[in-house]
């Protein structure tokens, strides 16, 4: 099952590369730099997905006390941090040639960075509690509090004046993206989702192994 997911993800990423570089045209205003979008946007969407899973799994753990939920929260949280980091780095590399700056303290960038820091803290907390069960409980509480921040992050771009353009995909009105670019973005998004599922199942297996050894 995991192996199949892995191959599917690899295939999807290859297709995404082909779509991003071969099929999709360069952007009228930005030129080829715009192709960074095919990494940047799927990364943050994957991260949001991961953090949503953390919230669900945290609530699930607190109510049922099944280790499976904690395993899911831990694994999704770690992968979410990786993808948020990727979003920040790729966004920064995209920002330099287009906006003319690596980083600016506008609402969207700042709140994404804060999201990253909150979940880094979440992972650190897990590492610092010796008692497994207690660590799971505490992490679940932090996971819930962290998730409350996510809507603030996402809606910030809609109500704050910012240098970051409004979201293309998750905006209330359909944004004007030409069909070929939209399709390439979709393929890359699906590929990243597959990759996320593959990494998640790998991370879950690793966590299960850790528990067996500790037992």
């Amino acid at each position: 099952m995991t192996r199949w997911l892995g191959w599917l993800a690899a295939l999807g990423l290859l297709a995404g590369l082909a779509m991003g570089f071969g099929y999709a045209p360069k952007d009228a205003v930005q030129g080829n730099v715009q192709r960074i979008m095919y990494v940047h946007v799927p990364s943050i969407l994957t991260a949001y997905l991961a953090f949503a899973l953390v919230l669900i799994a945290s609530l699930g753990y607190l109510f049922t006390r099944r280790t499976g939920w904690d395993r899911l929260a831990h694994s999704a949280g770690e992968i979410g941090v990786v993808f948020t980091g990727l979003t920040l780095v790729s966004g920064s590399i995209w920002g330099k040639p287009t906006w003319g700056t690596w980083w600016t303290w506008d609402a969207r960038l700042t709140s994404t960075a804060i999201l990253f820091l909150i979940y880094v803290g979440y992972l650190l907390l897990r590492g610092m509690v010796d008692d497994q069960e207690r660590g799971a409980r505490y992490a679940a509480v932090v996971g819930i509090l962290g998730a409350v921040n996510i809507p603030i992050v996402h809606f910030s771009v809609l109500w704050w004046r910012t240098l970051h353009q409004p979201p293309t995909i998750l905006s209330p009105e359909r944004a004007p993206v030409s069909a070929s670019i939209g399709l390439a973005l979709l393929v890359n998004g699906v590929a990243f989702a597959l990759l996320f599922l593959y990494l998640l199942s790998k991370r879950l297996a690793l966590r299960r192994l850790e528990e067996e050894i500790r037992a």
Binding site: T110, I114, L117, I118, V120, G121, L125, V142, N149
Partner: peptide, 13 residues
């Protein structure tokens, strides 16, 4: 060490 690391990011707003 952990207390400020957890508290500060949440306190930004």
């Amino acid at each position: 060490l952990l207390f400020p690391l957890l508290l500060l990011p949440v306190q930004v707003p």
